[in-house]
């Protein structure tokens, strides 16, 4: 073989302060081949919506929506499913996928031998998770429009709303993943998201519960996401939505801070 070592080239690489977008680029390349798997995640909430729309809705009739206005049952549940899909997309991304890369593949250790920093990874991965959540929720809202479940122009605001949901859950999911030791611990993820999905005012207004349980349900982050999106898709604005948005924002910021600190401690021993 007459191959020589690679030639020396000059002026290679630059130092830019912010490069979290490189993580997106990485994930984009990796997901190009897996788009079917990602895309199939979109169907679950749609199946639920059909089930509610054609079946359960007829049993329930109208329910009282935000501000006590009666709305069809499907229109009531749809924004909740939209919030849940943003949650699920973000949580799957930052728990299962990240755990594999973190614990088994040591992908991040390699990345940190380049100019990338732990914060780039944390911000990049949370941002990507949020994107996946938003992908689900924004395609979902198209289904809602087609089914006539939202007529207000305010519904467009549900997309930035689901960005907040994705951010909050993606950040907390990433923080949680840094504490996970084995695959068994992922049962805890299901144990957290499943009750949230069922009891956050998704399928009926919280007032069917006794006041004490209502209070518990209101701590659920998904409840805040659901209420925020419901206000937008049903076209009823209310100052409490500001509280819901703030809750999600603060939750996301705390999660991101913990995730960043933990990743740094884990990867730079």
């Amino acid at each position: 073989m007459s191959v020589s070592a690679p030639s020396r080239i000059s002026g290679i690489g630059r130092l830019t302060p912010f490069r979290a977008q490189r993580i997106w680029e990485h994930n984009y390349i990796a997901y190009r081949r897996l788009w079917k798997v990602v895309f199939s995640g979109f169907f679950e909430p749609v199946f639920y919506l059909f089930s509610v729309g054609v079946g359960i809705g007829a049993l329930v009739g109208d329910v009282s929506g935000p501000g006590g206005v009666p709305v069809s049952y499907a229109a009531f549940v749809a924004p909740a499913l939209m919030a849940a899909s943003a949650m699920n997309g973000a949580v799957i991304e930052t728990t299962f996928n990240i755990f594999f890369k973190l614990r088994f593949q040591n992908v991040y250790e390699g990345i940190l031998t380049t100019p990338m920093q732990p914060a780039d990874i944390a911000i990049g991965e949370i941002g990507w998770a949020l994107l996946r959540g938003v992908l689900y929720s924004s395609t979902f809202i198209i289904v809602m429009v087609v089914m006539g479940l939202t007529t207000s122009w305010l519904a467009i605001l549900a997309i930035p709303g689901s960005v907040l949901v994705g951010f909050a859950f993606g950040a907390v999911g990433l923080a949680a993943t840094t504490y996970m030791r084995s695959w068994q611990d992922f049962d805890l993820v299901t144990l957290a998201t499943m009750p949230m999905f069922l009891f956050s005012g998704t399928f009926y207004p919280l007032d069917v519960y006794p006041p004490a349980i209502q209070l518990v349900a209101k701590i659920s982050p998904l409840y805040h996401g659901t209420e925020l999106l419901r206000g937008f898709t049903l076209g009823v604005l209310d100052w409490t939505m500001l509280v819901h948005a703030l809750f999600l924002l603060v939750m996301g910021l705390i999660g991101a801070a913990i995730a960043n600190r933990r990743l740094d401690a884990m990867l730079r021993k």
């Binding site: 009739g61 329910v63 069922l198 009891f199 399928f203 009926y204 069917v208 519960y209």
Partner: peptide
Amino acid sequence: LFLAAMGAGLGSLVDSGSGEL
């Protein structure tokens, strides 16, 4: 969880709703 959420929770809406069941 499904039994509690759908049966008990949603049930209160259904039973006071259309009454088709």
